[in-house]
């Protein structure tokens, strides 16, 4: 689009920062404000900024993967997280938890919690991220 040097130079840094921040928001989402929806939106915003500064072509190159593929993969991950429970004989979308290094004696020590719920939230993140970029980039290229 336009070629403001300041914008072009700043976006590289800003996009990386926003992407990092979006992952931070995603991961803390279960206990504090954040989560897949918000993370995905922040991440997408970063690349929207990049697209405004550098153009859609450059953004696609930086992304490496087609955004619609990212969205579909996200949907697949979310579905897989839901189906996962079925392997343990539980209802579809029942959360499965594994507390890495937790002390069984202390109920408050959860160690490093890894769960199908987190996987699901990552799927949500990818869907939101991919969908928004699909839209914005297609519209950018059109104009």
């Amino acid at each position: 689009m336009n070629n403001s040097i300041i914008l072009v130079a700043a976006t590289r840094l800003l996009t990386s920062l926003l992407l990092l921040f979006s992952i931070f928001m995603l991961l803390r989402g279960h206990n504090l404000p954040g989560g897949g929806f918000i993370g995905g939106l922040i991440g997408a915003t970063g690349f929207v900024l990049y697209a405004i500064a550098q153009g859609a072509e450059a953004t696609r190159r930086t992304l490496r993967y087609e955004p619609q593929n990212i969205a579909m993969v996200g949907l697949g991950i979310a579905l897989a997280a839901g189906v996962f429970a079925a392997f343990f004989g539980e209802a579809f979308f029942t959360g499965q938890w594994w507390f890495a290094g937790a002390d069984p004696a202390d109920p408050d020590d959860k160690g490093l919690p890894i769960s199908s719920v987190l996987v699901f939230d990552i799927g949500v993140y990818l869907v939101v991220f991919g969908s928004i970029l699909t839209l914005v980039l297609a519209l950018e290229e059109e104009v």
Binding site: N31, G35, L79, W97, V127, V128
Partner: peptide, 28 residues
């Protein structure tokens, strides 16, 4: 039960996850 302190997020990704799944499918 769901090991989450952000109730809104727990509703989204655990209690009502199947709804959320439908919603992200709509977004896609």
């Amino acid at each position: 039960e769901a090991y989450g302190r952000n109730i809104v997020n727990v509703i989204l990704v655990d209690f009502r996850a199947i709804d959320t799944f439908g919603e992200i499918a709509v977004v896609v």
